[in-house]
Amino acid sequence: MSNQNQLITYAVVALVIGATVGYLAAGPITYNKQIQDLQNQLAAGGEAKLRGSLSIAGSTTILPIAQECANLFMEQHLMVDISVAGGGSGAGVKSAGSGEVDIGEASRNIKASELLSYPDLVAFSVAKDSVAVVINSDNPLAGDLDLTFEQVSEIFSGEITNWSELGGPDHEIEVYTREEGSGTRAVFVDYAMGGKELAANAGVKPSNGEMRAAVASNQYGIAYVSFGYIDDTVSAASINGVEAVVENVNNGQYPITRILWMFTKGMPDELEAAFIEYVQGPEGQAVVEDLGYISIY
């Protein structure tokens, strides 16, 4: 009996080990296939000049741009690994300034206090963007919500607390805000809040993605996000009668506009410079426009 048990045990263990080894072997084969192809290409003509790893962190507004550009850049430069993290603009400035990462990102301008702490930051503009107020697409007001900055500040400071005050259903307005380090928050407060404090009971979401996810899953939620995060799961409000679309930012009618930055500590080294140039170049700017942001040109 115990012999049979042992046999079964061994069979199971062998199966598990076999499957694991199989996976570990199969993974790289599939995963590396495209890399293999490119390596062959390179062996035929080009040379792998750039090598090394690059870490990028900061604004979650820029995160999609950086991630997409990094993937494209890594396909062209096989010996380069680029890690892209969020964290918010404050984290971008801090981690680039302290040398934790190679490139930081911010969706607002550097603050004076930050320049004092990290005097050797060098900034590069990579895109333009704006900030939109968004609500759930199942909200009865979705599609025709039109707010003035006055109203926006009253909603986000907790003076207007019910949707009925805006002509909507009789339900509490559930306000979400970004954390204090956020560039999107800084820009939003600058333009729209008119010196008022954000409501104390606003729920803090530490990224644009979480703002969008919160509103997309809460019928009575309201939040503000980067233009790059507007899609059909949420509905953007018009400001002063102007629809929140890229064209209206370009022609100067939509009242909020900002520049998105990347930073290096001191002058960028070869790899950092190559990546930033890539983002600023035609391929990077195509990604920028494709993702719903505005090209710097």
Partner: peptide, 11 residues
């Protein structure tokens, strides 16, 4: 967890 990433050094 939320705030550590952006709290400035020495602040």
């Amino acid at each position: 967890a939320i705030e550590f990433s952006y709290a400035e050094w020495g602040s």
